[in-house]
């Protein structure tokens, strides 16, 4: 029982897990689809699974040689092959074609939910299965605080707009959220193409950095 509690405490101490759970709850309370909430809860679940793996690895290593392991568990696979594949130019063309094709469907329809959900699951799964590069990135606490404060301001302002709606699930002109403001853009084919291209480019950029 204490082993389970220790692993649960390891997760509770991880701010990323908390952020994902809180975001998932807000998403569901504000009328979001189950798929949107699920991707956030799945992320928190993967972090829990990771902590369990860390705990097991620590027990095994401790019993064998008595060493302390780093916080990240050993990789399940190498990220290099997929990263190299992502960097191939042919993927850029294929992704652009996919964006043009996907944008034919309206937002919040089953085909787009399925496509974006599948891509999201694959990428989050890849992030879970692979080991980050052992890159030494030095960031000062003050620098983190500045960017964190800006992100927090955006989150709080969006939350204020959400709470200013008649209900959490009912959009309002007087208190517009970011998604309310972007809905007219994504109602057009060109807007959806731009949206998909930006989303895919952001994903590729993040994969290259990890």
């Amino acid at each position: 029982m204490s082993l389970v509690m220790n692993r649960l405490l390891m997760v509770l101490r991880d701010p990323v897990a908390w952020i994902l759970v809180i975001a998932g709850v807000v998403e569901l309370l504000s009328g979001g689809t189950a798929a949107r909430g699920a991707i956030l809860f799945a992320g928190a679940g993967l972090i829990l699974a990771d902590r369990i793996r860390v705990g097991r690895a620590r027990v095994r290593a401790g019993a064998a040689i008595g060493t302390v392991l780093p916080s990240d568990p050993p990789p399940l696979m190498s990220p290099a092959p997929l990263r190299a594949a992502v960097e191939r130019r042919v993927w850029v063309g294929a992704a652009l074609a996919a964006c043009l094709l996907a944008a034919l469907f309206g937002v919040h329809t089953m085909p787009l939910t399925a496509v974006t959900g599948l891509v999201g699951i694959l990428v989050v799964g890849w992030a879970w299965l692979t080991q980050p590069d052992a890159e030494d990135v030095d960031v000062s606490g003050r620098g983190l605080l500045i960017w964190g404060a800006a992100l927090l301001m955006l989150g709080l302002w969006e939350l204020t707009a959400l709470l200013g709606q008649p209900t959490l699930a009912e959009s309002s002109y007087e208190s517009p959220t970011i998604s309310y403001l972007l809905d007219p853009v994504f109602a057009t084919y060109a807007g959806r193409v731009v949206g998909f291209v930006l989303w895919a480019a952001a994903g590729r950029s993040l994969i290259r950095r990890s």
Binding site: D14, V16, A17, I19, L20, A23, E27, G32, T33, A35, R36, I39, L40, A42, G43, L46, I47, D50, D72, P73, A102, V107, H108, L112, T113, V115, T116, G117, V119, G120, I121, V123, V124, W126, A127, W128, Q131, P132, S179, L182, F186, R192, G195, F196, W199, A202, G203, L206, S210
Partner: peptide
């Protein structure tokens, strides 16, 4: 890894929230 999962989950959620 938890940072990677968090960032990529947020990225996936943005796709589902705005486009999916």
């Amino acid at each position: 890894r938890s940072g990677r999962i968090g960032v990529f989950a947020a990225w996936a959620w943005m796709g589902l929230h705005f486009l999916g």
